Amino acid sequence: MLEWLLEWDRNTFVYLNALGIEQYDVFWSTVTKITTWIPLFIFFGVLIFRNFSNRQALFVILTVLIMVLFVTTLTDLTKEAVARLRPNNDEGLNTVIRILRSPTGYSFFSGHSSSSFSITTIVFLFLRKHIKWVGLFYIWPLLFALSRIYVGVHFPVDLIVGALVGIFSAWLFYRLYHILIVPYLRLNRLE
Rank of each mutant, 00 (worst) to 15 (best):
M1D: 14
L5R: 10
W8S: 09
N11P: 10
F13M: 00
L16V: 00
L19R: 01
I21N: 05
I21A: 13
Y24E: 14
D25K: 14
V26A: 11
S29I: 01
T30D: 09
K33E: 12
K33C: 02
I34F: 11
T35E: 11
T35L: 06
W37R: 02
L40D: 05
F43Y: 13
F44A: 04
G45C: 07
I48Y: 05
S53Y: 15
S53K: 15
N54S: 14
Q56T: 15
A57M: 09
L58D: 07
F59W: 12
F59P: 10
I61G: 07
L62M: 15
L62T: 08
L62E: 04
L65E: 09
M67T: 05
M67S: 05
F70C: 13
F70P: 06
F70D: 08
V71E: 08
V71L: 08
T72V: 13
L74I: 12
L74M: 15
D76L: 14
D76F: 11
L77R: 12
L77N: 15
L77K: 15
K79M: 09
K79C: 05
V82T: 07
A83F: 07
P87C: 03
N88L: 12
N89Q: 09
D90S: 10
N94S: 02
R98A: 09
G105H: 01
Y106D: 02
F109C: 12
H112W: 13
S113Q: 02
S118H: 01
T121F: 07
I122A: 13
V123N: 05
F124I: 00
I131W: 07
V134S: 13
V134Y: 03
Y138K: 06
I139Q: 11
W140M: 00
F144K: 10
S147V: 01
Y150Q: 01
V151D: 05
H154L: 01
P156L: 01
D158G: 00
L159P: 05
L159Y: 05
I160T: 06
I160Y: 05
G162I: 04
V165E: 06
V165I: 04
F168W: 04
W171H: 09
L172C: 04
Y174S: 07
R175A: 13
L176E: 02
Y177D: 10
I181Q: 12
V182K: 14
P183R: 05
L185E: 12
N188S: 14
R189N: 14
L190Y: 15
E191N: 11
E191K: 13
E191G: 13
